Computed example of a mutant assay.
Amino acid sequence: MQDDNMERNAAPSPVAKRDLHSLTHGELLELLEKLNQPKFRAKQIEEWVWEKNVLSFDEMTNLPKVLRQALATSCTLGGVQVAARQVSSDGSRKYLLRYDDGVAVECVGMPNRNKLAVCASTQAGCAMGCAFCATGAAGLTRSLTAGEIYEQVMHVRDDFNSRVTSVVLMGQGEPFMNYDAVLEALRRLNSPDGAGIGARHLTVSTCGVIPMIKRFANEPEQFTLAVSLHSAVQRTRDLLMPGVKKYSLLHLYDIMGEYVDKTGRRPTYEYALIKGVNDSEDEIAALCDFCRDNLAHVNLIKLNDVKGSKFQPSSDAKALEFVKRLAAVGVEATIRNSRGSDIDAACGQLRQNVEKNF
């Protein structure tokens, strides 16, 4: 009897609030129906959430006060806490953003004349374990939601007070190990009711998760694909990228051919030049063979410095040799400038901490 009384007198568990970013249009309509509000309010709410990126329900000035109060009672607007912000000498800005559960990720804004590119993360940490990358050193904490990926881009937009013209999902994490959330985020970034960024200016960078490349090729949108290759010699690639050992270069070559045939789009291969590891004559020849007669563009990146890493970047002369040799077999290649390397914001340098001079 005493136990029964204790159970009856126990306080009810609080109902968890839902982030408005996580609601589909249909779910938002259901919520408005429960609140006895007209359907047209959904469009107004979505504009405040996705286009204007408001941080408070009080900012939704075209909604009646009673609705704003009801939304505040049952929902949140997500949002991030800026744990750290750095500005590079080249104008790039790196942000360490912390979500409500304490998980933090980094993203980067890179201005160039009248354009603004964002490098966003899709996971907190990474499970792929690439030997030259700082992100994977601590492993994977968790995948991000579509709203959390989207919020990174909106945060950069608002900090620069400038429209974002392109996004690369090339920050922390392997996007194709978080496929559904990544596609949802891409579609919202592409939508005229979201960030309104053209599909061809939205790029996903993968280590080469073959089943997901195949799935990506069948999506209706013209999103862009980049593959982190880093070596066309199987033994070297296995050393550098243990997370994709089970996907052989032969199978990657085949699936990329299918991708090009299916989409008609040119993929990019990312290749970080590492002194004495993947810049030998055999490595150059293998890369030329892999890319020859294949619609592809090669981005050559001189390895960026990662604290504690045993790897060193190749020389400028070696990078130019790669460009020349690839051009000789009809493959376009460029040496990509690393943005934000002085604040550890370049490729392979992102990590989840507040070390150094934040």
Rank of each mutant, 00 (worst) to 15 (best):
residue 109 G to A: 10
residue 111 P to R: 04
residue 112 N to F: 15
residue 114 N to S: 14
residue 114 N to L: 13
residue 114 N to D: 14
residue 115 K to F: 13
residue 117 A to F: 01
residue 119 C to F: 00
residue 120 A to P: 00
residue 123 Q to R: 04
residue 124 A to K: 00
residue 124 A to F: 03
residue 129 G to L: 10
residue 129 G to W: 06
residue 131 A to H: 03
residue 135 T to H: 00
residue 135 T to I: 02
residue 136 G to Q: 05
residue 139 G to R: 01
residue 141 T to M: 14
residue 144 L to M: 04
residue 146 A to L: 04
residue 147 G to C: 00
residue 147 G to V: 03
residue 149 I to N: 06
residue 150 Y to G: 03
residue 152 Q to T: 07
residue 152 Q to W: 02
residue 153 V to M: 09
residue 153 V to C: 11
residue 156 V to H: 05
residue 160 F to R: 01
residue 162 S to E: 15
residue 164 V to R: 04
residue 167 V to T: 01
residue 168 V to F: 09
residue 174 E to Q: 05
residue 175 P to G: 09
residue 176 F to E: 07
residue 177 M to W: 14
residue 177 M to D: 15
residue 180 D to Y: 04
residue 182 V to S: 03
residue 184 E to G: 11
residue 184 E to H: 10
residue 194 G to H: 11
residue 199 A to H: 07
residue 199 A to D: 15
residue 201 H to I: 12
residue 203 T to R: 05
residue 203 T to S: 15
residue 205 S to Y: 07
residue 208 G to L: 08
residue 209 V to Y: 08
residue 209 V to T: 05
residue 210 I to K: 08
residue 219 E to R: 06
residue 219 E to F: 09
residue 221 E to I: 06
residue 223 F to K: 00
residue 224 T to Q: 15
residue 224 T to C: 12
residue 227 V to R: 00
residue 227 V to F: 02
residue 231 S to M: 00
residue 231 S to I: 01
residue 232 A to F: 01
residue 232 A to D: 07
residue 233 V to R: 15
residue 234 Q to G: 06
residue 235 R to K: 15
residue 240 L to M: 08
residue 240 L to Q: 04
residue 242 P to C: 12
residue 243 G to L: 01
residue 248 S to F: 08
